[in-house]
Amino acid sequence: MALRYICMPAEEAQRIWRGGRDANGNLPERHISDGDGVPCRHCLSNVEADQPYLILAYRPFLSVQPYAEMGPIFLHAEECPAAADGQTMPPVLTSSKDYLLRGYGADERIVYGTGGVIPQEQLEQRAEELLARPDVAFVHVRSAKYNCYQCRIERC
């Protein structure tokens, strides 16, 4: 099965870069990267050392309902291009030893029994297994340590 890695929508990133507020109604915080573990959710690459980035609350769902989790993410402070082709594992998913994967139905609700911490080298295999299920429409990849949203994976 071919996978497609989906970054934060360009419209949402543009809104933030133009002074928009985050999911909590706050302006993003601006910081300088130390170059270690600052993954931008738009280009799906790490923010390089000494480069500015934003911290903001983000809800990666269209609906607002109990399973529509919100949490902190990083975004380059200056506009960056959206993640490349979407069919190649992005750099942000190769920088940790493990990730939390969780399947969601078309209604954007967690499909129980799909969540688990997966070693990085098994990430694609587990995503394929979850997406082979008829009740799973997409998968979220999250930080295993902090539960921060990384990206979404869908079938191609």
Rank of each mutant, 00 (worst) to 15 (best):
L75C: 05
A13D: 11
D85R: 07
M1K: 08
C40M: 10
Y149M: 05
T88E: 09
L131I: 01
A49D: 14
V47M: 01
R21N: 09
S45L: 15
V111K: 08
Q87H: 14
E29R: 13
A13W: 06
E12G: 01
H140S: 03
Q14P: 03
T114W: 09
Y53L: 02
G86S: 00
R59D: 02
S33Y: 10
D36I: 14
C40S: 04
G71N: 00
N147L: 15
G20S: 06
P9E: 09
E124C: 10
R102W: 08
L93T: 02
A137N: 14
I118H: 06
T114V: 08
I118K: 01
L131K: 03
L54Q: 04
G116A: 03
Y146Q: 14
E12A: 07
C151Y: 09
L75H: 11
D50Q: 14
M70N: 05
E78T: 13
C156T: 15
G20H: 05
R155Q: 07
E108D: 12
I118N: 01
P9V: 11
E124Y: 06
E12C: 00
I16Y: 01
P134N: 14
C148T: 04
P28N: 05
S63A: 15
L123I: 10
Q120D: 11
I118R: 04
Q14Y: 10
P91T: 10
I73L: 09
R15K: 12
R126H: 06
L54P: 06
G116M: 04
E69R: 07
T94H: 12
N147T: 10
R59N: 11
G35Q: 05
G71L: 08
Q120A: 05
C40F: 00
A57R: 02
M70Q: 00
C80I: 05
L44S: 03
L100G: 00
E69Y: 14
Q122W: 08
R18N: 11
P39C: 04
A127V: 10
P134E: 02
A83I: 00
L93Y: 06
G105D: 06
F138T: 01
E129M: 11
G116I: 05
D50F: 15
G103E: 02
L100S: 11
